[in-house]
Amino acid sequence: MAQPATPTVRVVTLRIDDHDLSAREDETIIEVCREHHIPIPSLCHLDGLSVWGGCRLCMVELEGQSRLYAACSTRVAEGMRIQTQSDRLRRYRHTILELLFAERNHVCSVCVSNGHCELQWLAQKCGVDHVRIPYRHVAYPVDSSHEMFRLDHNRCILCTRCVRVCDEIEGAHTWDVMNRGTDCRVISDLAQPWGNSDTCTSCGKCVQVCPTGALVKQGTSVGEMVKDQHFLPILARRRHLS
């Protein structure tokens, strides 16, 4: 008689909001939510890239736990009961988005990503119709030295999707982050103009995964920068298979 193969990864059942679901135990909460179209806001997580856990928008409540958990970096477990929407979570997400809007210059009306921006879209979803937090009004530089692309630090939310896609998918590691706190800035090579970069392959993946108008194509005008991220899960899967 054939022996059943011992599974290395178990399947667990859990409850997210009102849905009873099953999931592999090596999946994170956000992956299960995405699979079942349960909306959880996030600006740093992207299917195909490593976990970052920086935007803190995907925080959820676990039954029996007083502290919150980031859905992108928390694995599911048997019997877990997860609450993705509550007054408290909505309030926190609202405030975090406000903090982002106040931190740098996010004026949608003049942005090439207007209408195609994940920050803008999330703000609308979360009902951020005004910002109570004082704007900082700090001017950051714009790097237009690359012949095809442009980096506008004023629109950057430091989600590091560009850093991760360049390192993990393209394998160039052109991008990194320098400084700390609010002085953080995404840099190409060792803080050289992007156009002078020796490592950049001009593949444009960073531009496509950027959630805002920070990384865009040259020559786009207001609202013209539409991004396409469909390549990412496919490339990521190929990379992990090979």
Partner: peptide, 17 residues
């Protein structure tokens, strides 16, 4: 504020505000 690494938004922007 000056010691925040800048990785997560609440600490980076929140301590500043």
């Amino acid at each position: 504020m000056t010691e925040s690494c800048g990785k997560c938004i609440p600490c980076r922007a929140g301590t500043q505000q």
